Simulated assay, not measured.
Amino acid sequence: MFPEDIQAAATSVVQAALKAGVMIATAESCTGGLVSGALTSVAGSSAVLDRGFVTYSNEAKAEVLAVSEGLLVQFGAVSEPVARAMALGAVDHSRATASVSVTGIAGPGGGSMEKPVGLVHFAAVGPRGGVVHIERRFGDVGREAVRLESVRVALALLLDAVAA
């Protein structure tokens, strides 16, 4: 279902989480569950994936992950503070000790000069705490390409968080 490199990355995350005894949660917006989908494509992933949150709307981010409405109003959903809050919220609202979040603008519309199509913010929390943030600007390369590239980045970030 997923390209080979994504399948391999998901397998690496599952194996690393098994080895470390870490449970994972995902908090996704523009990827719509593709990160958790990649993880669940790996046999045995049920031992490490607690749950995936698809919080596409601002209301869902606030209700399900406890992202403050103040952050959403001040910075917008596609921002570093919201990505960080989503990752923390995923851990706080699950049995997971590690998480990754993705929030961005996949396009084709919805972008602006400040936040163009292809802008995606990621954050990850590892079992030892702390939040790591990454911003990527993939450009207006098409909705599917932005989403798949986002899955690649999210899995790499999650692997680093779990293996650290």
Rank of each mutant, 00 (worst) to 15 (best):
V131Q: 04
S57T: 15
G89Y: 06
V141G: 02
R152F: 08
V102M: 02
A145Y: 12
K115T: 11
G44S: 04
E149G: 10
L158W: 02
F138S: 03
D160A: 14
F75Y: 15
E144H: 13
S46P: 07
V35I: 07
K19L: 13
R128A: 15
G44H: 01
A77G: 11
R136C: 12
T11F: 13
T26L: 07
V91N: 05
Y56N: 09
R84N: 04
K19T: 13
D5P: 08
G111F: 08
K115Y: 06
K61P: 12
A164P: 10
A87P: 07
N58V: 14
P108N: 10
V73D: 15
G21R: 06
A47T: 13
G142Y: 01
V146H: 09
V54P: 05
G126F: 02
A8Y: 01
M23C: 09
A66I: 11
V120M: 06
Q7R: 14
I105R: 13
G139F: 03
F2Y: 13
D140F: 04
G107R: 07
T26D: 07
R128I: 10
Q7I: 12
D92M: 08
T31E: 09
G109F: 12
M86T: 00
T40W: 07
R143I: 07
E114F: 01
G118D: 05
F2C: 05
C30M: 13
A43E: 14
V22S: 05
G33E: 06
I105C: 11
E28C: 07
G76F: 05
V64M: 10
V102W: 02
G107D: 02
F53M: 05
L18E: 15
L71N: 11
T55K: 11
S101V: 00
A38E: 03
V13W: 06
A83C: 04
A62F: 10
R147V: 01
S12Y: 10
G33D: 06
F2G: 02
M1S: 09
L148V: 14
V153Q: 10
S101N: 09
A106K: 03
A123N: 00
V35R: 00
M86F: 06
R95H: 14
R137A: 10
L155N: 09
P116V: 14
E59V: 15
A27Q: 05
G21S: 12
A66C: 15
G139Q: 06
S79R: 01
E80N: 01
D140T: 02
E28Y: 08
E59G: 15
G89R: 12
R143Q: 12
A87E: 05
M86N: 04
